[in-house]
Design a protein around this nucleic acid. Structure first.
Length: 274
DNA sequence: TCCCAGGCAAGGC
DNA sequence: GCCTTGCATGGG
């Protein structure tokens, strides 16, 4: 990796594939421009990613932000090595070998995954896009993700009009709570299970949404978001799917260990695309 | 068409 | 505590 004034150059692509990274369900704000060419948005920033045969380039006026964002200083080879041999992992890692878990904004993850509940990914993208266009700062040729204050200034009806459906109330109530002082940063230094319970006190956040926020916004690795796709994986692993979500979560963390969060992403991506 | 989606809150027991 | 039900919306 070479960091320049307005770009990052990646010359080792064994653990970096921009399509894997963007299509594995952790981010909703990006556009595919061409084959291997994407524009990505995070918070109030943006970058352009182009992946070629044997290198990739990330163009941005704040490269350091995106070095952290794309988790470029972490050794994914070691993570994969530790996961290999566990149930269904080898094929999932082979298929999604270029996945990296992004370091995204906590507040953006909170709102994005409240919207994600019982929803389709294309529709989630649409709602979030309209949310940014209507409440986010105009950055010239794109919109920033709105601040807690901007979102707290609107009511349930506003979010219904955006197409959020029954999640509209959750958005209004939770953004008010954060604007009024609920400290998202304070959750950073507590363990996964305790952090999960704390996030669940916010309206619209249950165990699964909390795990997504912790994995993508806090990079906590001892979590396992259990959604409809992971339930299918669970059936493959244990033979049936009659257990409730808490039991499924606990058993999967038991099986996949300290790198459960990474395991979950490889398994999710492989199940959803194959 | 009808089923389903990166589930949650509320109410029943 | 665990289990069931209702829920807005639009893509496939």
């Amino acid at each position: 990796m070479v960091i320049q004034k307005n770009s990052i150059i990646i010359t080792e692509l064994e653990d970096f594939d921009i399509r894997h990274i963007l299509d594995c369900g952790q981010i909703f704000r990006y556009e595919r421009l061409n084959e291997g060419e994407y524009r990505v948005y995070s918070k109030d920033k943006t970058c352009l990613v182009r992946q070629m045969q044997d290198s990739a380039i990330i163009e941005s006026d704040d490269p350091n932000y995106f070095v952290n964002y794309f988790d470029l200083e972490r050794n994914y080879g070691e993570i994969k090595q530790r996961l290999k041999g566990k149930p269904f992992m080898d094929e999932a890692i082979e298929y999604g070998h270029g996945i990296r878990i992004l370091n995204q904004d906590k507040w953006e993850m909170l709102i994005s995954f409240i919207i994600s509940a019982n929803n389709h990914i294309p529709r989630i993208k649409g709602i979030i896009g309209r949310l940014c266009a209507s409440l986010g700062e105009n950055m010239g040729d794109y919109y920033a993700f709105p601040t807690p204050e901007a979102m707290a200034s609107k009511d349930e009806e506003f979010y219904k009009a955006l197409g959020a459906g029954y999640r509209a109330k959750y958005l209004a109530v939770t953004s008010r709570q954060v604007a009024d002082g609920f400290d998202l940063d304070a959750i950073d230094c507590i363990d996964g299970n305790t952090a999960n319970k704390k996030l669940c006190t916010l309206m619209g956040v249950g165990s699964k949404v909390a795990d997504c926020i912790l994995l993508f916004g806090y990079h906590k690795q001892d979590v396992f978001p259990v959604d409809t796709w992971i339930k299918k994986v669970y059936k493959d692993v244990v033979g049936d799917g009659v257990d409730n979500n808490n039991v499924i979560r606990r058993k999967l963390i038991d099986i996949y260990g300290e790198y459960s969060g990474y395991a979950q992403q490889y398994l999710f991506f492989n199940k959803r695309e194959n």
